[in-house]
Design a protein around this nucleic acid. Structure first.
Lengths: 347, 347
DNA sequence: CTGAAAGCGCTAACAT
DNA sequence: ATGTTAGCGCTTTCAG
């Protein structure tokens, strides 16, 4: 690893000059000829700055801390983190990702990240919900990912849940479904509320009466399958908007038991169906894709812009826009979901 | 952030003494009374060492680089990384995880990690195969995770693939299957070879002739389903050992089309079936679980022991051991897969 | 325009 | 047994 000192010695200038030049702060302060000399020597020697040494002096590490719970258990976390990493990398930042279980370990991880001098934090709950940002983060730049701050003090990047429900339902209406069911999540969370609201609105705009019996909110457990079975028996829906992977499976299973074919007898729109599911069975299914990668990417852009106190070029940030595929799109069709940026309420 | 200097001032000793004490190197070098004084002041002030400053001096960062391809696309990567993180954390290390696509980006990431002064690298391919470790890593401690070094120079931690095939087949033999098929992977890789070998050995030990027509190696694509269909029609197997999630689905799909019930008409043993699959359909399925978390954990222990040049306490390392569940185990039953540690060939 | 000097927080060889 | 000193590689006043 070549150092500034070596460059200084080999070019006959002082270290300070080298520093100035190599940080691009030489404009009108260093003789251009000298500057070029230094720059050449630097590339010749393959000089790379030592970020640790710089950090010690500047108190900026260009390291970002990504805090999430249960990274391990969701197949989508990877996408978010990858997006965040790519954006970070594009702006010369690195990511420390830590996953936590429970309050104590979270505070521990935060403390460790602080010791390493991270410049800011991502705070992520792997499923859009309202959450509290730990007090210990309050004096740092923070962006919430796939979650909303309970106190609205921290900006967030999350999917446009309303539009997910809306688009999915529109799609089922287009498919000429008469009795459209929503198989949702029994837990209270933004994703559930937003999607349900979108479902209702789409129905109402189409002049359909909202029928509560067609809504079946379940947990991801044993009773769920029975509940969906009951929905089939009681209401005979011909269209299903499913909260997620698991809920879509319940519908598939129930349909199979009744000899109903998805895509013929019933229509199904799911959210973010897992790859194995989609590829293997090639189901006659439309899926709303959550832009995980983009969510991570955008969050990172936001966090970096907060840290550096200036806007970052968001044109480089692939912010997914909502779009409905044409009705004759190849199956499985994908509906792209838009991202929502919630800014903090200045108080 | 309180510094050693502050502690020194407030206790009236020199910084060096504080450093000595706080690093536990005071035995017989510092007056025990003074040492206690320093320690108390440190806890009183909530002193935490500044790892960056230390690193600058020692050239050790206690940061580990985790290089993997396509972290985003596999739901299992998270488990491995989480395990590695936990072990790292237990020994006071942090993890920089980077994911790469393509040669160029890999070299880039490696260069960046080096600049940050990582002490060693994990090199991981998300599916047990033989791989080349980049030349640029050759002067660092490296552990391969879920892969084997082509040149056998780098130690690795990976699943015991042979035992996976062996145990799965034993299980099917126990279930009294007469015609046991293997739905494998057409790609050449350790996982495929090892599992097939285990399957063959188990059959032979049971006095069964190996029948190549019962082996159906497919890619994860369209033709796969047709191939499995053909297997059903031509060979009428009553037991299936499936390479992975996707392959198990082909079998499920074919069985469903023929009105066959898994767990009654046919038996299936899969590998590492995805959570959604297992929970939602509650299939009558036995699954061999790959210990991803443990694989990460063990790798980290190994890497750290290489870095520090001493054995780390592997008793703290949950190294999964193989075990067959009893035949009357609740369904879905899980077979735990053992990990294999391959040491480098000293040359 | 350029360089000398101080120092970020810590470690370690060397005196005392 | 304790303190002094000299850096690790870099940034940043402040003189010249």
């Amino acid at each position: 690893m070549t150092t500034m000192k070596e460059i200084a010695e080999q070019t006959g200038v002082s270290i300070s000059t080298v520093s100035l030049v190599l940080n691009g702060r030489d404009e009108g302060r260093v003789n251009p000829a000298l500057a070029k000399l230094v720059r050449n020597k630097a590339t010749e020697l393959g000089y790379k700055i030592n970020p640790l040494a710089r950090s010690l002096r500047t108190n900026k590490t260009r390291i970002l801390g990504f805090i999430s719970e249960e990274v391990a258990t969701t197949p989508y976390a990877g996408g978010i983190i990858l997006g965040a990493q790519d954006a970070a990398s594009a702006y010369g930042y690195m990511l420390f990702t830590v996953s936590t279980d429970g309050k104590a370990s979270e505070e521990n991880e935060i403390a460790t990240l602080k010791r390493y001098g991270v410049d800011g934090f991502f705070y992520s709950k792997m499923s859009n919900r309202i959450a509290h940002v730990p007090e210990s983060l309050s004096d740092y730049p923070v962006v919430m990912v796939d979650a909303t701050d309970y106190e609205n003090k921290v900006p967030s990047v999350e999917p446009d849940e309303f539009m997910i429900g809306y688009d999915a339902t529109i799609r089922l209406l287009q498919a000429d479904c008469k009795r459209i069911a929503y198989v949702g999540c029994a837990e209270n969370m933004i994703a559930q509320d937003g999607r349900l609201a979108g479902y209702c609105t789409a129905l109402q705009e189409a002049g359909r009466a909202f029928n509560p019996s067609l809504v079946c909110n379940v947990m991801n457990d044993g009773p769920a399958l029975r509940a969906v079975n009951k929905l089939f028996d009681d209401e005979h829906p011909d269209g299903f908007f499913c909260f997620n992977d698991a809920r879509a499976w319940y519908v598939y299973e129930c349909a199979a038991r009744r000899g109903l074919t998805v895509g013929k007898d019933i229509s199904v729109v799911g959210v973010d169906n897992h790859r194995v599911f989609a590829e293997t069975l090639e189901p006659q299914l439309t899926t709303v894709e959550l832009p995980h990668y983009e969510m991570g990417y955008w969050s990172a852009c936001k966090l970096i812009s907060m840290i550096e106190g200036k806007d970052v070029d968001t044109s480089s940030c692939p912010s997914a826009r909502a779009s409905l595929p044409p009705l004759d799109a190849p199956i499985p069709a994908k509906i792209h979901c838009a991202l929502l940026e919630k800014d903090s309420v200045i108080s």
